[in-house]
C-alpha cells in the first residue's frame, strides 16, 4: 500500500496545475524512493517527467511498486478543495481502485476526504538520452513565464537565439514583431534572480509558444528555470 503525507497541499496543487494542460491521464509510479510520473501529451510534442522524492513526504510508506492511473482533470478539481496550508495525505491500498486524499486544516478542525477512481493507463516508460547541449540558459522562472506570455501577443512561435553573452527571444507575426533580450548577470543577491548562459556553440531554434506557456505554468514550483538547447534535439526545460 501507499501512504504519503505532505505538510502543505499547495505543493501538489502547483504540480497538478502545471501538468494538467499537457497530460490527461497518466500513472503515478510509486515505489519506496518516491512517486514518479512520465507522460507525453496527446500529440507527442512534449514529455513531462516528474519525481516527488520520498524525503519530501513525512511519513512516506510504499510497500511495493504500484502504478496509480490518474485522470488529471479530476485530480485538479479535487485539489482545488484543499487549502494551501492543509496537510495532505494520499493513500492507496493493495489492488486499490481508488486514490484517497485527505486534507486537514492546520488546527485540525476541518478534515476533507475524497476518493478518486483509478484508471488503467497503458504507458511506455521512456529513456531520455544523455545529451551535451549547445546552450544552457538559467534564468528566473517568472521572467521566462513573462517572456512567453508577452511574445504570445505577436506570434504563436518564438525563436530562441543563444549567443555568447545574451539570449534573445524573438516573435514575428502578421501584425508585427517583438523581441526580448536577456543578458547574464553575476552580482545578484538572490540565486533565483541569476541569469547565466553556458555556450558550446551558438544556437537558434523555434518553438511553439502554446507549449512553452504550458511549461511556464510550472514556474510557481521553483524560482529558476534552465533551458537546454541543441539542434535537432528537443528543448529541455
Amino acid at each position: 500500500m501507499l501512504e504519503a503525507r505532505l505538510p502543505s497541499a499547495v505543493t501538489l496543487k502547483k504540480i497538478i496545475d502545471a501538468v494538467k494542460e499537457l497530460v490527461q491521464d497518466a500513472n503515478f509510479d510509486c515505489n519506496d524512493s518516491g512517486i514518479a510520473l512520465q507522460a507525453m501529451d496527446s500529440s507527442h510534442v512534449a514529455l513531462v517527467a516528474l519525481l516527488m522524492r520520498a524525503e519530501g513526504f513525512d511519513p512516506y510508506r510504499c510497500d511495493r511498486n504500484i502504478a496509480l492511473g490518474i485522470n488529471f482533470a479530476t485530480l485538479a478539481k479535487v485539489m482545488k478543495c484543499a487549502g494551501n496550508d492543509d496537510n495532505l495525505t494520499i493513500k492507496a491500498g493493495e489492488d486499490a481502485d481508488v486514490l484517497s486524499l485527505m486534507f486537514e486544516s492546520t488546527n485540525s478542525d476541518r478534515i476533507s476526504e475524497f476518493d478518486i477512481k483509478l484508471m488503467d493507463v497503458d504507458a511506455d516508460h521512456l529513456g531520455i538520452p544523455e545529451t551535451d547541449y549547445s546552450a544552457t540558459i538559467k534564468m528566473p522562472s517568472a521572467e521566462f513565464q513573462r517572456i512567453c506570455r508577452d511574445l504570445s501577443v505577436m506570434s504563436e512561435t518564438v525563436t530562441i537565439e543563444a549567443v555568447k553573452d545574451a539570449v534573445k527571444f524573438i516573435a514575428s507575426g502578421d501584425t508585427g514583431s517583438g523581441s526580448i533580450t536577456v543578458k547574464p548577470n553575476q552580482a545578484v543577491d538572490k540565486k533565483d534572480m541569476e541569469v547565466t548562459v553556458t555556450l558550446q556553440e551558438p544556437v537558434k531554434l523555434a518553438f511553439s509558444l502554446k507549449y512553452l506557456n504550458h511549461f511556464a505554468k510550472a514556474s510557481t514550483l521553483a524560482g529558476s528555470v534552465t533551458l537546454s538547447l541543441s539542434d535537432d534535439v528537443p528543448l529541455m526545460i
Binding site: 507525453m40 510534442v45 516508460h125
Partner: peptide
C-alpha cells in the same frame, strides 16, 4: 513552425 514536431522518436522505450 505553427505546429511542433513529435519528439517521440528521440526517446527509447525501456
Amino acid at each position: 513552425p505553427a505546429g511542433q514536431r513529435s519528439i517521440a522518436a528521440f526517446f527509447t522505450k525501456k
